[in-house]
């Protein structure tokens, strides 16, 4: 392990067929700047530019939305489906306020392109409906202004889905992707513990 930088190696075991497969699916790539619109259209159908109509599966239903490649999932949810539970707080997802489930996993809709969500199962806070976590939040007063609350509800739901009997330490260690400015953390911990213990 002495000379890290000069180690060259070749690995076997990769399936070369995987690598070749599909090569023909796209017309010979040309430099982007020389492409005409026509050329782009003649390329793989998977190259999308400009506004396009897609179907998003949100909260168990398919919805037609119009998006451009640079439309985020969050904007599609909030502006087109009027599902405003997920909130725009940080552009880079660092607040967790836009948390939704994508195929069951907690992700920030603000950093996902709407096009990436095609074919995925999207669930927003609106889909939970009187979930035990939501009831526990109310009972333990785990919301103040409430703006971060839907994101936190989703995070707690996700944590407890993964670890239904999470301990206090696991709860404290597992909910750090969200930010609350009013300072509801103590009550969120209590709410999560109560659900983990089977009640609310």
């Amino acid at each position: 392990m002495t000379d890290l930088k000069n180690k060259a190696a070749r690995k076997s075991g990769f399936n070369r067929r995987d690598f070749f497969r599909g090569s023909g699916a796209i017309a010979a790539a040309t430099a982007l700047q020389t492409q005409t619109a026509e050329a782009i259209q003649n390329q793989s159908p998977r190259v999308i530019s400009g506004e396009t109509s897609i179907s998003l599966n949100v909260n168990g239903k398919d919805h037609q939305v119009k998006v451009a490649p640079n439309t985020t999932l969050l904007d599609a949810l909030r502006y087109q489906l009027d599902l405003t539970g997920a909130k725009p707080v940080s552009s880079d997802g660092s607040s967790g306020a836009s948390t939704v489930f994508v195929d069951g996993k907690p992700m920030t809709a603000s950093t996902i392109l709407a096009l990436q969500a095609v074919g995925k199962k999207i669930e927003t806070v609106e889909s939970l409906g009187a979930d035990a976590v939501q009831k526990a939040f109310v009972k333990h007063d785990a919301e103040q202004c409430g703006f971060c609350t839907p994101g936190f509800v989703m995070a707690v739901r996700s944590l407890l889905d993964k670890k239904p009997n999470a301990s206090k330490e696991e709860i404290r260690g597992g909910l750090n992707g969200n930010i609350c400015r009013c300072g509801t953390y103590a009550n969120i911990v209590e709410a999560a513990i109560s659900v983990a213990k089977g009640g609310n």
Partner: peptide, 8 residues
């Protein structure tokens, strides 16, 4: 509370 936790 319920309005806040449900996103309503």
């Amino acid at each position: 509370g319920l309005a806040k936790v449900t996103g309503a």
